[in-house]
């Protein structure tokens, strides 16, 4: 739908003769294109603004490298800044500490928490751990049934609970189930909730307090727009998130939410969901996401070689 950012940048630099210095004046148009590309990718307005200011600061006064065009030079800077802002390195789950380790899934309605809980159970089982799935969603119709079916598919035990129960009690009781079954990891599936829903956010705090999870993972939809920062900030403030799982990444969303969430909360994106099946969970690659947000894959590898 939109031109590739690198083409657009090449266009803006047409007038720039030779390979001189990047100046405030000659990169103004290029930075405008960068900003638009970020906004089109759903990067939060303020995050995009700060980001472009950072790129401007780094770029102005730079000598254009011999092997690069000015457009490529700007892209190189943008790409590097973007990757470093997104964490540079892939970060794994924290599974140290005394078992049972507790992983808690939180997020808005429909983000993919229950599915991701199943995917994590599969991943942990593959690592030789014995996970227990805990259905703490008494809200959504058939949510417990959904998790039970996923557990059955995987051959992973699911704590028995019913929609009449209290989510905090369910989680506490699940600790007993875990020790009875010899499980060394609990994966808590909580109900989807709005970040502005006071009673339900308080409920998550109580679960956190009782279970002391080593991982509190915000499950966020890669298609989320400008609101991603409000949601992530609110969950982070209340719970102190340890990581983010970005879901539905296999689609064509540019994924600006990834950058926005990371920039505003500093919480690392640890995993990405790339499908509905239970094996569709992958480590997060900051660099790939950077290229994707800019709507450019191949050109970047060219720049990398330079």
């Amino acid at each position: 739908m939109f031109d590739n950012l690198s083409d657009r940048l090449a266009e803006t630099f047409k007038r720039l003769k030779g390979h001189g210095k990047l100046s405030e004046a000659n990169i103004a148009d290029a930075l405008r294109e960068v900003r638009l590309a970020l906004l089109e990718a759903d990067v939060n307005y303020k995050v995009a603004k700060d980001f472009v200011a950072g790129v401007r600061e780094r770029a102005v006064g730079q000598e254009v490298m011999k092997s690069l065009t000015p457009a490529q030079q700007v892209i190189k800077i943008v790409r590097e800044e973007l990757s470093s802002l997104m964490g540079g390195q892939a970060e794994g789950l924290n599974l140290i500490g005394r078992p049972p380790q507790v992983l808690m899934m939180v997020g808005l309605q429909g983000a993919g928490k229950t599915t991701t809980a199943g995917k994590l159970a599969r991943m942990l089982a593959g690592m030789g751990k014995k996970p227990l799935l805990v259905p703490a969603d008494v809200q959504r119709p058939a949510a417990i049934e959904q998790l039970k079916k996923l557990g059955a598919q995987l051959g992973v035990p699911v704590h028995d609970s019913d929609p009449g129960g209290d989510p905090v009690d369910i989680c506490v009781r699940a600790l007993g189930t875990a020790s009875r079954l010899g499980c060394d990891a609990l994966i808590l599936d909580t109900a989807g909730r709005l970040h502005i829903d006071e009673p339900l956010m308080a409920q998550l705090e109580r679960i956190k307090q009782k279970l002391q999870p080593g991982e509190i993972l915000l499950v966020a939809d890669a298609m989320t727009g400008q609101d991603a920062v409000n949601v992530a900030e609110a969950f982070h403030q209340r719970l102190g998130l340890s990581g983010v799982v970005l879901t539905k990444v296999e689609g064509d969303a540019r994924g600006g939410a990834a950058l926005s969430i990371r920039a505003v909360t500093g919480v690392p994106i640890k995993l990405v969901g790339v499908g509905e099946k239970l094996d569709a969970l992958e480590p997060f690659h900051p660099d790939r996401m950077a290229g994707r947000i800019l709507g450019m894959g191949d050109v970047l590898s060219l720049v990398e070689k330079a």
């Binding site: 739908m1 089109e40 759903d42 939809d221 298609m223 989320t224 727009g225 969303a253």
Partner: peptide, 10 residues
């Protein structure tokens, strides 16, 4: 979903 950004157009 009202939370969706520009991808909703696609």
């Amino acid at each position: 979903d009202a939370t969706t950004g520009q991808n909703a157009l696609n």
